[in-house]
Design a protein around this nucleic acid. Structure first.
Lengths: 335, 335
DNA sequence: GTGAAAGCGCTAACAT
DNA sequence: ATGTTAGCGCTTTCAC
């Protein structure tokens, strides 16, 4: 099928193709009659302007690159949903780049995206250690870039995130207020900034409550169900006297709950739990999981908005946004 | 930052810009010495060819459109992961179009995607009733298009899916083999093809086992936890004598489990359950959920491969692929 | 082996 | 109010 071009329309309407361009772009200086005729021919021929040709002229593709590492991760899925909605509203599309299988592909991805002339890049993947050289050079080149929950030490990025310190504080406080003192924590992997921040919240809460910190109460897990399950077993083995647990995400919490059940602990009476993320399933565990809610779609939406702003106004000032998490009380925290 | 073009490279290397083009595209008829010098200048200047300009010349963008309706849906998330991996391997990118918020936007999305000259479209959203006129016209125009789990009655699409009839059969048989006869079902919404097919599997299994079908044993829910919870309450109320349940997805199953727990039923002794999808969390419910596993990433991968094939070979024959689901036995089915 | 010219589909400046 | 010309960055004839 041959593509209908602006020239075909012009020929059919008996005008020059610049006139068609004028009509298309709603420029003045076209007779009403001509305008009408041209529109009619456009309809008849089913003409669609080529975004590619336009991009070439304008040096602007209205396309943004999206880098994500883990599509299955609820947080980033929600971020992407929010970002997509905002992009759509402003006439942008996202070009999808998921480095799921091989994080080492990331520099290559960024190269391909810039080659495709994306107007900016949204970096929607978590911040871990030592993996950011390729990003730094992009930022230095002046490519508009916004990250969500991703930081580069010493580099001033535009980043939108949720306050993890605050979340860790709220989660731990909930358990303290329920009367607990022997509160364990299953943290996310070392080198994840969010895990570190949530842990700082935990420590701070204990300190404020005058509860001595006991390092043996702390375990680590990758963010998975399995990880949480195993970490809980280790924890139960080492410090069976725990009466409460702060799990740094809901999957860990649910995995831990299984380990606790298997160990014969009643929830929340023997062991109270607070999770993190407020997954939809958190309301359906037994007992329902008290957890920290994060405005994830809002993160994505704000990030996209900032990105588009900085695309359209290169002189825009750098911004950093830190949204607030919120404790959602359900049964698992005890009373 | 001014973009470095092929002319800049040519000037710096002291050759004409066609020569640079030749080097870039590895064409013959360039002296080795020239070739080397040009590459060196390319490196020095950090030149990147413009994919936009190339697209204009080749009338090919190496970009595919991706239409999805529900990013949070595990099935489609996994499909997208698989599709993305395959696209990457073949040098394609996906342009993301999520009609999450408003399904009525879909025609507009398709228009925008074709305007952007995508080479083909992957339709990764579920099939419901009466929503396909805009797609038909695309297919008729000859736009390469592959769908996952999406059908249009009377239209021959390329579709990759998992056999839902077979899945429904396996799920129900598992319960029958465990000795159950009063087996309820919570189905997905009417007008969803997958829900309908799974229900047919359920009926077929009962029939084969010589168990009379009782329509009052069947409830409907949207695919959610909440929906499953409420449907189960209705079911318990109406037919408390049920001893088993086929939930058409795992969320429904988990919601139903909550309702059953609240009603004081022990699982799986009082009521056995089989779910569908094999969500990661299915292994961590109490009891662990027996469910139907679907090769979702494979669906995406195959779909992308078919799509790219049909982009690169317009004469390719239409294909339809139906993958097999697999029962995963855990505790919830009873023995 | 290399350069000059044309054209992909479009917009923008400058005619008329 | 409409047409002509040039050019976005690239590839592809076709000369030389």
């Amino acid at each position: 099928m041959e593509r209908v071009t602006i020239r075909d329309v012009a020929a059919a309407a008996g005008v020059s193709y610049q006139t068609v361009s004028r009509v298309l772009n709603d420029k003045p200086d076209v007779a009403d009659e001509t305008r009408r005729r041209v529109w009619q021919v456009i309809e008849e021929l089913g003409y669609q302007p080529s975004a590619v040709a336009r991009s070439l002229v304008f040096k602007k593709t209205h396309t943004l690159g999206l880098i994500t590492a883990d599509f299955s991760d609820y947080f980033f899925t929600q971020v992407i949903i929010g970002a997509e909605v905002e992009a759509r509203r402003s006439g942008y599309f996202f070009l999808l780049g998921s480095t799921e299988r091989n994080p080492a592909d990331e520099p290559e991805y960024l190269r391909l995206l810039t080659e495709r002339q994306v107007d900016g890049i949204l970096f929607a993947r978590p911040s871990t250690e030592g993996d950011s050289e390729h990003l730094v050079s992009l930022v230095r080149q002046g490519v508009p870039l916004v990250t969500t929950a991703y930081y580069i030490p010493g580099e001033e990025l535009m980043v939108v995130d949720v306050d993890n310190l605050e979340g860790g504080l709220q989660a731990t406080n909930c358990l303290i207020q329920a009367g607990h003192r022997r509160i364990g924590m299953i943290s996310g992997p070392a080198s994840w900034k969010s895990a570190d921040d949530r842990a700082r919240g935990y420590r701070l809460a204990l300190e404020q409550a005058g509860v001595a910190l006991n390092e043996s109460f702390i375990e680590r897990a990758d963010w998975s169900l399995q990880g949480g399950y195993e970490a809980m077993k280790r924890l139960l083995n080492r410090v069976p006297e725990l009466t409460a647990l702060f799990a740094q995400n809901d999957w860990i919490a649910i995995g831990a709950m299984k380990a606790l059940r298997e160990a014969g602990r009643r929830l929340p009476d023997d062991v109270a739990i607070v999770g993190y993320d407020d997954l939809p399933v958190a309301a359906y565990t037994d007992p329902p999981l008290t957890t920290i809610h994060q405005p994830m779609q809002e993160v994505g939406q704000l990030a996209a908005r900032l990105l588009i702003q900085s695309v359209e106004d290169p002189d825009m000032e750098r911004e950093e946004v830190l949204l607030k998490p919120e404790l959602v009380r359900r049964g698992s925290c005890g009373s």
